[in-house]
Every structure is written in structure tokens, then in C-alpha cells.
């Protein structure tokens, strides 16, 4: 394939990945704090519906309608996350059960409440090429000729990574997911912090919903974002709970998706289902490889540098306290 063919594939990939970047980084933040928000599928869908409905209703107000759409989607995400956090952290019930019920409930809620907004044109995020940068050959066309939402996602990746690994607060965030008892002994209010990060993650997942309905899959229809929430959960695992790797995995998924549409015409022998199923198979394989000791045994035979780099790139170990109840007295 030539560069001229690859470029459109990659730009479609970035467009497909952007909402997932928000959803996956949100889930990453929540899970690193030790809480699984399994409601992603429902959260993204209900937030997409709400974001579209609000932006559509306020369409005459001008550009502010888009902002209102994103804000309301984020609020929906926060509210759903609040239910997860309350059930999991205050009532100490199974996070998986509550998240799962919410995933189904909110998906159905989005169909029930959004029936008046099905398949009508609505406002979309305008494109916004960045002056000068957009003229860089290749890179400009790829990264700097989209809209503010895409640029925000770049910024979000960078900020999340810096926050996780270069700030004290980020250290505490990782601590409450790994060693909540130790973090508590050092004076951190583990439950409060977990509430905060669950809500923050929920807000980002809500924004992901709006990113679908107001930008990359503009509009609303029955189960408009079906599947993306589950995919987001898989990508977080595939990315090993590390924001940079999670973001890369999102782009990898985007490339797979845009390849799928190209492959249909160029290599018809490969069934397209391969591309949609691949992320899940890869996730499971990676989990099998890294959660059992087999990989470690295998890597020990390699030279130390190689084994260290491989471990860092593909290791996928969940936060130690993920999904566990923490008794704080």
C-alpha cells in the first residue's frame, strides 16, 4: 500500500478512536482507583442520547448548544457513576452487579427517552484546522485538520499520563487502587477519593457518548453506540491500565475498524467479522499470557533488556485492589 492509501485509513482510525479515548481514559482512571464501572455500555449510550437531545433542543442558541450537549452528557455520566460509587463504596455491594444492571438499564432508558430524537439532523462539532500546523506534510493532514474535540483528546491523553506518573495526586490515585490500606494509613480518605475518581471517570465516559452523537457518529438512533462501551472495557485491559498504552490501544482498534471497511473490497477472502472480534480475542489472549506465569517464565530465557522491554509493553496486571471492598473505619 502507498502513502496515499494509508493516510485516509489512518485519519478514519483517529476519528473512530476519539470517542473511545474519552471513554477508555475515564474507565482507566476509575479502575486505577480500584473501582470497576461496568456500566460503560449504558453510560455511553444514555449520555449520547442526552447530549444529542440537549444540543438539538437548544440548537437555535448557536454554538453554546454544543457545549450544553457535552455538559449534559458529562452530567449523565457523573450521575450513573454516582450510583455505582454509592452501591459499591457506601453500601459495599458487588460493583460488577450494579454496573452491569446499569449497563442494561441505561441502554433501555436511552431508547425509551430518546424516541423523539431518532434520525433527525442535529448540530455537530465544526471542524477546526489549526493554522500553520495543518500545513505540515502528512502529519498536518493526519493530526491537525480535525476539530477541537480531537485536539482535546490529545491533551487528555497527555494530561492523564502526566497526572498518573508525574504528580503526587496521581501517585495517591494509584495507591488507593493498589494498596488502599497503606494509603489510608498515610492519611488518605480512600472512600472519598474513590468517589471522586469514579465520578470523574463517569464524566469522561459521558463526554465520549456526546462525542459519538455530536461528532463522529452524528445523530441519534435506537442503540446508537451499541457495543462501544463493552469495547472500551476490553481496551482498558488491553492497555494494561496505563493511559498511554490505553490510548495506543484505542488507535489500534480504530485502525482495525477502518481496515475492516477497506478489506471488504480489497481482500474479500478475509471475513470482516475477524476485525470486529479481534479486539476481544486479543484482550483474552493478552490476559491469559500476562496473568499466568507462563510469559514470565518464557521471558526469563531472553536477554534482560529484551525481557524488560517486552514486559513493560505487554504486561497487563490489574490494580491489586480492583473491585475489592475497602473497609475504612
Amino acid at each position: 500500500m502507498e502513502a496515499a492509501q494509508i493516510l485516509p485509513i489512518l485519519s478514519v482510525a483517529i476519528a473512530t478512536s476519539t470517542p473511545l479515548i474519552f471513554a477508555c481514559l475515564g474507565e482507566t482512571i476509575t479502575e486505577r482507583a480500584g473501582v470497576i464501572n461496568l456500566s460503560a455500555e449504558g453510560t455511553v449510550m444514555l449520555a449520547a442520547m442526552t447530549g444529542f437531545a440537549v444540543a438539538k433542543t437548544t440548537e437555535n442558541w448557536g454554538d453554546i448548544s454544543l457545549l450544553l450537549g457535552f455538559a449534559s452528557a458529562a452530567i449523565v455520566g457523573v450521575l450513573i457513576a454516582l450510583v455505582v460509587a454509592f452501591g459499591a463504596l457506601t453500601l459495599k455491594q458487588s460493583q460488577e452487579a450494579i454496573g452491569f444492571v446499569l449497563a442494561l438499564l441505561c441502554a433501555d432508558l436511552s431508547s425509551f427517552l430518546g424516541s423523539n430524537f431518532v434520525r433527525i439532523p442535529g448540530p455537530t462539532v465544526p471542524s477546526f484546522p489549526i493554522p500553520w500546523l495543518k500545513d505540515i506534510p502528512l502529519l498536518g493532514a493526519l493530526f491537525f485538520q480535525s476539530d477541537l474535540l480531537v485536539y482535546t483528546s490529545y491533551l487528555l491523553i497527555f494530561l492523564t499520563a502526566v497526572y498518573f506518573y508525574r504528580t503526587r495526586a496521581g501517585l495517591m490515585l494509584r495507591a488507593i487502587g493498589e494498596q488502599p490500606a497503606a494509603a489510608f494509613a498515610r492519611g488518605t480518605n480512600v472512600i472519598l477519593m474513590r468517589y471522586f475518581y469514579t465520578l470523574l471517570g463517569g464524566a469522561l465516559m459521558g463526554i465520549a457518548g456526546a462525542a459519538f452523537a455530536l461528532d463522529f457518529k452524528a445523530g441519534w438512533s435506537h442503540r446508537h453506540t451499541a457495543g462501544y462501551g463493552w469495547i472500551a472495557l476490553a481496551i482498558v485491559i488491553f492497555g494494561g491500565w496505563n493511559p498511554l498504552r490505553v490510548a495506543l490501544s484505542c488507535y489500534l482498534f480504530g485502525i482495525l475498524q477502518s481496515l475492516a471497511s477497506v478489506a471488504q473490497s480489497t481482500i474479500p477472502d478475509v471475513p470482516t467479522q475477524v476485525f470486529t472480534v479481534a479486539p476481544f480475542v486479543l484482550m483474552i489472549l493478552l490476559l491469559v499470557l500476562t496473568s499466568s506465569d507462563r510469559l514470565a517464565i518464557l521471558l526469563k530465557r531472553l536477554p534482560p533488556i529484551v525481557s524488560r522491554i517486552t514486559t513493560q509493553t505487554i504486561q497487563s496486571i490489574p490494580p491489586a485492589a480492583l473491585g475489592k471492598v475497602f473497609e475504612q473505619d
Binding site: G87, T90, K92, A97, V101, D108, L109
Partner: peptide, 27 residues
Amino acid sequence: NLESSLAGVIQGMLVLFALLGRGLSET
């Protein structure tokens, strides 16, 4: 002229509140 997904909403609500209620009774 209402969406049939209301069934799922009712089922989901019942289960969600049953879970939360169980949690409340324990804590």
C-alpha cells in the same frame, strides 16, 4: 406510541433497587 424498551427499564430499575436495598439492609 411508546418505546417497548420500557420493559427493560422496569426490569433494570427493579433489580437495581433490589441490589441497593440489599446493600442498605446490610450496612
